[in-house]
Design a protein around this nucleic acid. Structure first.
Lengths: 214, 214
DNA sequence: TAGATTGTTAATCGATTAACAATC
DNA sequence: TAGATTGTTAATCGATTAACAATC
């Protein structure tokens, strides 16, 4: 386990998809890589290669044990750990994330929100307190927070990101439509809705232009 | 413009990042691909190649006109169009998206929400009505809706997706932690938070294991 | 002009897929 | 055993990057 080979970003992103699928079928039986691949629209060799990084292996002619694979994936993805995180920016999206109960499933625990507005500070959302932005860095440092979620407007995102890093945060989950520049050792994961929308919009355009060709 | 070469998914996902950056610097001047690349941590050849699909081109020794490039990117990404969309599932996340004013920036207009709960139907969020789930397919068909946003629990996601497609929806933006199976010609774009969290969590583990080696 | 910068062609790199041996 | 399925090695494919010619 300690010496498991590094996994590519692409593979890593597919692992939660496998987990979702396996949880949806449930049961006590076994499943073949071919079945998984077919259900998810992937190549079966790819599925086996991805799973080889995670699990103790399947059995020829039988496949993979569903429950075992679920357990291996959860363990590998760190869903059994508990990582404390703060949310910065308690607008609609920030508050929605603070209220979301599903994160515990993924080993993430939102412990507090931060906002610059005096109208929000002192209140609670989803049972979690909202503190003033001025206390963010100190809070992260004393509580040992490693994950920060940025749900501020784009203009504030970079400075807020700086505050988080000052407080010792090592991973920033960025929902603001802005590029964040960070130093070595800090990971920025963008949940950029504009990027997703770009793909949707392009697809629609192509569909329409096929129907109405020049 | 009609015969622009197809753009890879990777390139397409970077275009909104360029746009964000250019908007953040603003101004009337010009900018070189090298500068853009440096600011975003990309390769300068990649930037030029990406931009060549979008813009009428830069000028040697001078670079690209910032405002011109912004306009080209917006046009290419379809941000000047207006695509009507519905949101299915008006829980915390769904309501947050309904209230979000930024989508108009991206050519997306949320026109209505749908939910199965009688406590929500009839109400308004962000000035948009919530209708009962039973009216979803008919609504999409009569209003010509092409985009559906799924913010239901995972269990309901696939059936809701089916209703959307029955109603003529061609692009599904899926926030539920579930794999959606769709037919030919329909695009599913997953905004799967579990996938993002997998990357964050893996990064943290690696950081920690570096500090505390076996 | 000289030099900075674009745009393109060729080389590299990495991820996906095909072929096939190992295994139950 | 025969055949289904895994796991791995080799081939393919596509994206990134390097080299370089074109241009202002």
């Amino acid at each position: 386990m300690e010496y498991s080979q590094p996994v590519s970003v692409n593979t890593l992103q597919r692992l939660p998809v496998y987990l979702n699928y396996l949880k949806s079928i449930g049961g006590e039986g076994n499943i073949s890589s071919t079945e998984i691949a077919k259900a998810l629209g992937l190549n079966d060799v790819q599925v086996r290669k991805d799973l080889s990084a995670v699990s103790s292996g399947g059995r020829p002619k039988i496949g993979y044990n569903v429950q075992g694979l679920i357990a291996d994936l959860k363990e590998f993805l760190g869903y059994n750990a508990v990582n404390a995180a703060v949310i910065v920016g308690c607008g609609n999206l920030g508050r929605a994330l603070m209220s979301y109960r599903g994160f515990s499933e993924y080993g993430l625990k939102i412990v507090a929100g931060f906002d610059i507005s005096p109208e929000l500070t002192g209140k609670e959302v989803g049972g979690k307190p909202i503190y003033p932005l001025s206390s963010l860095t100190e809070y992260c440092r004393t509580e040992g927070i490693r994950i920060g979620v940025v749900t501020t407007p784009a203009q504030e995102a970079q400075s807020v990101c700086g505050l988080l890093i000052q407080g010792g945060v090592k991973a920033v989950w960025n929902f603001a439509p802005a590029h964040l520049t960070v130093g070595e050792g800090v990971l920025v994961q963008n949940e950029n809705m504009a990027c997703s929308l770009a793909l949707l919009s392009k697809h629609l355009n192509e569909m329409l232009s096929q129907k109405n060709p020049e």
